[in-house]
Simulated scan of single mutants.
Amino acid sequence: MSEWWTYSLSDFLMFSPRAYWRLFEQQLGAHRYAMWPLLALLLAPWISRRPLTAQRWAGGSALLAGACLWVAWTFVVQRLGSIHWAMPNFAWAIATHALLICFVIGDTLLRRPHRVNPRAAWLILALAIGYPLAGVLLGRQWNQIEFLGLTPDLTLLCTLVIPACLASRWRWLLLPVPLAWGLFSAATLWTLASKEWLMMLGALAVCLWAVWRVEPVGRLVGR
Rank of each mutant, 00 (worst) to 15 (best):
residue 184 F to I: 14
residue 95 A to W: 00
residue 160 L to N: 07
residue 21 W to K: 04
residue 149 G to V: 09
residue 32 R to G: 07
residue 132 P to K: 15
residue 5 W to T: 05
residue 123 L to K: 00
residue 83 I to L: 13
residue 85 W to C: 15
residue 167 A to D: 00
residue 68 C to V: 00
residue 211 V to F: 15
residue 172 W to D: 14
residue 10 S to M: 05
residue 81 G to I: 06
residue 5 W to F: 03
residue 162 I to A: 08
residue 136 V to F: 03
residue 208 L to H: 08
residue 135 G to A: 11
residue 178 P to N: 15
residue 191 T to Q: 02
residue 11 D to I: 00
residue 75 F to M: 09
residue 41 L to R: 12
residue 126 A to M: 10
residue 148 L to N: 05
residue 113 P to Q: 12
residue 219 R to D: 10
residue 115 R to P: 00
residue 19 A to M: 13
residue 47 I to F: 13
residue 215 E to M: 07
residue 160 L to Y: 13
residue 206 V to C: 06
residue 131 Y to D: 01
residue 144 Q to Y: 02
residue 167 A to Y: 10
residue 37 P to H: 07
residue 59 G to I: 10
residue 84 H to C: 12
residue 195 K to Q: 12
residue 59 G to F: 14
residue 149 G to M: 05
residue 40 A to C: 02
residue 179 L to R: 11
residue 105 I to V: 15
residue 42 L to Y: 10
residue 182 G to S: 14
residue 190 W to N: 14
residue 37 P to Q: 12
residue 39 L to K: 05
residue 92 W to K: 14
residue 107 D to G: 11
residue 86 A to I: 04
residue 191 T to D: 02
residue 43 L to Q: 08
residue 140 R to F: 04
residue 67 A to N: 08
residue 219 R to Q: 11
residue 28 L to G: 05
residue 18 R to D: 15
residue 37 P to N: 06
residue 117 N to P: 11
residue 9 L to H: 14
residue 170 W to V: 13
residue 126 A to T: 06
residue 165 C to V: 08
residue 191 T to R: 09
residue 48 S to V: 05
residue 52 L to K: 02
residue 50 R to P: 03
residue 98 A to I: 00
residue 114 H to G: 04
residue 192 L to G: 12
residue 183 L to W: 14
residue 61 S to T: 13
residue 69 L to Y: 02
residue 120 A to S: 09
residue 64 L to K: 02
residue 5 W to Y: 11
residue 202 G to A: 13
residue 155 T to H: 05
residue 165 C to D: 04
residue 33 Y to P: 08
residue 51 P to N: 04
residue 80 L to R: 02
residue 15 F to N: 10
residue 22 R to P: 06
residue 192 L to E: 07
residue 157 L to E: 06
residue 166 L to P: 01
residue 50 R to I: 08
residue 53 T to K: 03
residue 14 M to K: 15
residue 187 A to T: 08
residue 205 A to C: 11
residue 79 R to Y: 01
residue 62 A to S: 12
residue 88 P to V: 05
residue 74 T to K: 00
residue 157 L to V: 10
residue 167 A to E: 01
residue 82 S to N: 13
residue 51 P to E: 05
residue 10 S to F: 12
